[in-house]
Nucleic acid binder design. Structure first.
Length: 494
DNA sequence: CGTGCCGGGGT
DNA sequence: ACCCCGGCACG
């Protein structure tokens, strides 16, 4: 099964430079294998042991060359990526819109891809791309390198080339047989870029475990060795991955799954499969682990900062904008996979710095709502509770928060029948406003997850006798609920 | 030290 | 949401 798949896809990979390689088949094979293991993938190649695999990458990396190859597919023209870039903007919009909202796959899906960014730069230069790969498994490189050279040196006859669309050219990273120093540099660069989305990477899929395992070993080793200096990210490439089915460990995650499935199922299905795969594999578990985390997909293409909430979306974006294929076009190579990375975004942080990420994707909208709520409460207690950091809130809120809200809120605080009466009267605001505080604080806490300003300022004690004093411990049942719960007294506000 | 109540935790 | 409490600030 794999073989089949591989073959088909392989063709694509080969295409790359325009120079064909016999390698294709191999590469493809490698690829498939690797896929399950790791998306980014050079590793897999190692696993297979097929030098070819490495070659494959190279092509991809070539970027420029790849592009050329791509051109056949759908590229309008010229320098692959660059041309794509031009298109980009236009496409982008569409793409974004078109992009699904599903975060689905995210978890499983794409971990990290090599950064497309490289590709463009690399364009003409195979080496750069290659370098990347090299880093990972130096050993193979040599082999590959040889092959590669041979290939390069002698272009295969056109006949040999297979026009087949590269279902998975994706591997952005390239290895270069030669030029170690350069390679390293490149690798570093790549890593850096990748590091951006360390968390995401792992979304390991349990399912994957079995298959990828084989592959994973190989690459792992390679990685460990190669990575030495540039361990920028938290890549979870650790040994743990295999053993731990859980979430984070296996770097393989998405792609692996994807590929895996694909390979097993049908050749063509590509996209569909991919999509479906996501669903299948999407592990709720991993995601959940961090409630505040949201998975986003970031386009790694050179100047593209596009961030989308959906893997499919980002893929489409890449396909359309960067790869120059029509978004609607039926076929997707999976090439896109390599040009985007999954990143986890802390929702909390989002709320604070929405500006950075949010804007990019429409989907992101979610978090914002938080503000309004928080704001609502604020107006009331502003002077008192908010003293320190939150002072700004009032302003913002003022607009949105009608006085009404305040009073309503108050009620909740601790609804004793009595309390209601008291609280309700908005007028109650007193200078010291300890009572007010209570309400406010509460609301604040509930509503705003964000860092609280509360800390230092503890409201001064109210003068009024509280339930405790009024009723005494004996009649505790008489106390307002708040007092009973050791909360700010609702009944006797100051 | 008693009190008020915040911040958390449990259900 | 309701209920409890640990613990801290304040007086």
């Amino acid at each position: 099964m794999d073989a089949k798949r591989v073959l088909d896809k392989s063709s694509v990979g080969i295409r790359v430079g325009g120079a064909d390689f016999n390698y294709r088949a191999d590469c493809s094979v490698v690829r498939d294998t690797r896929v399950p293991t790791v998306d980014s993938g050079p590793m897999p190649a190692c696993m297979n042991g097929a030098a070819l695999g490495s070659v494959l990458y190279t092509y991809v990396m070539d970027g420029g060359s790849v592009v050329d190859g791509a051109s056949e597919k759908s590229f309008p023209k010229g320098n692959g990526p660059s041309s794509g870039g031009g298109i980009l903007h236009d496409m982008e919009k569409t793409g974004s819109g078109g992009l699904g909202d599903q975060r689905d796959t995210g978890s499983t899906g794409v971990l990290k891809r090599a950064s497309p960014t490289h590709c463009p730069s690399i364009n003409g230069q195979l080496p750069g791309g290659l370098m990347h790969l090299d880093i990972r498994n130096p050993g193979k490189q040599a082999e590959l390198a040889d092959c590669f050279r041979a290939v390069q040196g002698q272009n295969l006859p056109p006949a040999e080339r297979q026009p087949l669309p590269s279902s998975h050219i994706p591997v952005p990273r390239n290895r270069k047989p030669s030029g170690h120093a350069d390679k390293e540099v490149m690798a570093a660069t790549v890593l850096t870029s990748l590091s951006t989305s360390p968390l995401v990477l792992h979304p390991a899929s349990t399912t994957t475990a079995a298959v990828p395992e084989l592959a994973s070993r190989g690459w792992k080793e390679a990685l460990s060795a190669s990575y030495s200096s540039s361990t920028s990210g938290n890549w979870s490439w650790d040994a743990s991955d295999q053993s731990v089915p859980s979430t984070p460990s296996p770097p393989l995650s998405n792609d692996a799954n994807k590929n895996f499935l694909l390979s097993s199922q049908g050749d063509d299905v590509n996209e569909d499969v991919t999509e479906s795969t996501h669903f299948l594999f999407e592990d709720p578990i991993p995601r959940k682990r961090k409630n505040s985390m949201k998975v986003m997909f970031k386009c790694l293409w050179k100047n593209c900062e596009k961030v989308l909430s959906t893997s499919s979306g980002i893929q489409r974006h890449i396909r359309a904008v960067h790869l120059g294929r029509n978004s609607d076009s039926d076929h997707s190579d999976g090439e896109e996979d390599f040009y985007y990375s999954e990143i986890e975004v802390n929702v909390d942080s989002l709320s604070e710095g929405l500006s950075s990420l949010t804007p990019t994707s429409p989907t992101t909208a979610g978090p914002p709502p938080v503000f309004p709520l928080a704001l609502t409460d604020v107006p009331r207690s502003e002077h008192i509770s908010m003293n320190g950091s939150q002072s700004h809130f009032p302003t913002l809120l003022s607009q949105s928060a009608p006085s009404t809200l305040c009073h309503i809120r108050t009620d909740h605080a601790y609804q004793g029948p009595v309390a209601h009466v008291r609280t309700v009267s908005i007028g109650e605001k007193r200078q010291p406003a300890p009572s007010t505080h209570t309400t406010v604080n509460k609301n604040h806490a509930l509503i705003t997850p964000a860092p609280k300003p509360t800390q230092g300022t503890r409201k001064p004690r109210g003068e009024a006798k509280k339930c405790r004093k009024v009723y005494g411990m004996e009649k505790r049942d008489m106390w307002c609920t708040a007092c009973r719960w050791k909360k700010a007294c609702q009944r006797f506000t100051d």
